[in-house]
Computed example of a mutant assay.
Amino acid sequence: MYHTIKTELKDNTLFIYINRPDKLNALNQQVMSELALAIDEVYSNKDIRSAVITGEGDKAFVAGADISEFLALSDQQGAELAKKGHVVFKHIEDCPKPVIAAVNGFALGGGCELAMACHFRIAATNAKFGQPEVNLGLIPGYGGTQRLTALIGKGKALELMMTGDRISAEEALQWGLVNYVVAPADLLPKATELLQKIHTKAPLAIARVIKCANASQNYAVDGFEIELNEFGACFATKDMQEGASAFIQKRPAVFTGE
């Protein structure tokens, strides 16, 4: 089905591998199209409760966009290319099921932007992050200027984007770009550990947490109003009744996503 990515469903988590290791998993239009299809499956498949995006091999998560595709583009075509990236990455960001980026190696340019579109990030100790587009006479085009600023603050984001520097996994942790740094061998196990914990929670509540958190970065909407409405909507779910009853009865809740 896929040529540039691989998928594996394990314990209700879909593992999505960007599979161009000979190109350091660089993003091209085929990768973006296939990634969009994989995320569609996360949305629609009831057996999938979460996803992990990572890179094939141990050198790179995604080392950037495939620059060979850029040389023949006009300004209008460049904008269209960026628009496609925006759509795919927003689809990841808005996914009602948790999506973790497991960053193994280089996450540069479009790779860093892909990681930031995920709900949070775990980095291997060998991970490197950066937005080096200025070295090519470009800027981040898949939402990087916005998400990086939201995650690490305007000053640090501007420094990273204007210098084109790379930062280590430990620096990314200090700056708030990643949640955890682990040994490469522990990367996917750590993601699995976190997701298995999340799987014990109410799926509809998880989806609403994601929606409300995303609203905090959308100045076109009132995030507080969305939170109020989503909080109220929880009371119409069987999961809220189950969660409250289980708490009172001092037993583990069994959520059904209803």
Rank of each mutant, 00 (worst) to 15 (best):
K190Y: 03
L138I: 09
T200I: 07
P140Q: 07
T237F: 14
A51H: 09
L37D: 14
A107I: 11
R166W: 08
R49N: 00
K211I: 00
E193K: 08
P184M: 05
A207N: 05
V31W: 15
A157Q: 10
I67S: 14
Q131C: 04
I198Y: 10
P96W: 07
P21M: 06
F129I: 05
Q196W: 02
T145N: 13
E159F: 15
T125N: 03
V254C: 02
A101K: 03
A127K: 03
N179T: 07
R20Q: 12
K128G: 02
I48T: 03
Q196P: 05
G155N: 11
R166S: 04
V221D: 03
H91D: 01
D165E: 13
P21Q: 10
Q77M: 04
T13R: 07
E34A: 04
L138Q: 12
D165A: 08
G64F: 09
G257P: 13
P252S: 00
I18W: 08
A117L: 04
Q174Y: 06
T192W: 04
G111C: 05
K10L: 02
A26D: 05
A169R: 01
V62K: 01
G137Y: 01
Q30E: 15
F255A: 00
L173P: 11
K59S: 15
L204P: 04
P184Y: 11
A36M: 14
F247L: 12
M162C: 01
K250F: 02
N179Q: 10
